[in-house]
Nucleic acid binder design. Structure first.
Lengths: 149, 149
DNA sequence: TAAATAAAAGACAAAAAGGTCTTTTAATAT
DNA sequence: ATATTAAAAGACCTTTTTGTCTTTTATTTA
């Protein structure tokens, strides 16, 4: 579905967010290791994301990446479009240039419904909501943070 | 969503089916032109599809491609998997190797629903059903084959 | 049986995706 | 100030995808 760099970016951003919640700023080495992505490729992707303002970074000892707490709730869709463009969200399932209501491809209606759902998902979910999901899931499966009732 | 060769294959197969219904066997040149795909690339794709048995072909004058009327109703899914593999139908949205119910990625549940819908669509629709859709659509917008009531 | 037609086969090549590495710049700690 | 740490920049490389072209093989018609 998504391209490799998009996948790495999504995984990395959620990881950064989770670490930020623990007052930590992970570096490229840590991020790449944790999300199981190649070090240099990861570095390149996050350089780009930093330049585009999706993350902030600090150089030198103790440096690393962090997400500006100001701009809370970054929808996945924004990130995805910044990396691989919006083709997935607007394109025709048959690959036709001018497929629309007036000149529909044989799959127009059926594919449109799926594309709408994809749009809904990535517009609704954010890096922060996914990080929160992960935390909740951990809580649900671990005893250590759960009060006995 | 789909790769280029998959798109060309889908468009081409539907076109062949539509022509077959008119007792015609289009050649590569005609197919490529109609589906707006590069000639040689189209040729290569349909050579492969012929070898895999998805279409039959005849050489020489009057030759061209046709779909075995015996094996009616070819689900899009079979065709797609034959060309680009099943990644789209089984893969994790986050790109994780071992993402499952026990070890879900942050998007597991939400993405699973969309993947299911994609599966449903391509398993349900066939080259023949799409051709029929197209015919019906033409009828709906044209007066020439419609009886006055 | 020769000429024409059309697919089959396979080599070749450009572009995009995916990945690696070295050098430079900036920050921090000693 | 200097050594250390870590990101930024950018050159370079590999693989996959996408596309092109030439030669060969099969079929049909005249």
């Amino acid at each position: 579905m998504f391209k490799k760099d998009t996948e790495y970016a999504l995984r990395g951003m959620v990881y950064i967010q989770l670490q930020n919640l623990k007052e930590r700023r992970p570096g490229v080495a840590e991020i790449a290791h944790e999300i199981e992505a190649p070090y240099f490729f990861t570095a390149k992707i996050f350089q780009r994301l930093a330049k585009q303002g999706f993350v902030k970074s600090m150089k030198g000892k103790g440096g690393g990446f962090f997400i500006d707490p100001e701009k809370n709730d970054l929808p996945l869709k924004e990130l995805i479009i910044a990396i691989e463009g919006e083709e997935l969200f607007v394109g025709c399932g048959f690959g036709l240039k001018n497929c629309d209501e007036n000149n529909p491809c044989p799959l127009h209606h059926q594919y449109g419904m799926i594309r709408d759902q994809i749009n809904q998902l990535v517009a609704g979910e954010t890096i922060q909501s996914l990080a929160q999901n992960t935390l909740n899931k951990t809580l649900a499966f671990s005893r250590e943070n759960v009060e006995e009732r």
